[in-house]
Amino acid sequence: MLEARGLACLRGERVIFAEVSFRLGAGGALLLVGANGAGKSSLLRLLAGLLPSAAGALLWDGADALADRAAHAARLRYLSHQDALKPALTARENLRFFARLWGGEVEAALAALDLAPLAELPARVLSAGQKRRLALARLALGAAPLWLLDEPTVGLDAAAVARLGTLLAQHRATGGMVLAATHLPLPLPGAEELRL
């Protein structure tokens, strides 16, 4: 169970958001919506522990989630705007690196997003949508209960969105949680909305 109590984010002197509170239980999904610049990406970075919170608390099963950063990092997968791919490495090599960090099956993750035919291509020749799929394939590696997704479907075609939907459904069926910031409709049935 992830619980946020009165989180706030400052950038310089400017308050991006304040008093953000929510609860997310096993299998739950939360959509972050709001205009550009409302702080959706900042909130995700804050939840990942990459940005300090100016106020409030983030609790995991009732205990301070960020007290042990390594433990918090181990239970989450963060997908940012950037795909975190190295253009010089092939799709498989890019994914294999993360599999070595987190564990998990490279081939199964490639198959989950229909990337097997592209596995031997260097990431620099992949299209924007294919790169996004490769970044999403990281979600299929190893199990982490909390997924933080920043605009996961940008550049994806309908088939890839459907594959992501399958991945999300499997994740939630096994008790995983999803927090997603998006402007596009996401395959997350029954998701609550948090407006920033």
Partner: peptide
């Protein structure tokens, strides 16, 4: 974006 992933 790799640095974020490395820090996590």
């Amino acid at each position: 974006g790799t640095l974020d992933q490395l820090l996590l």
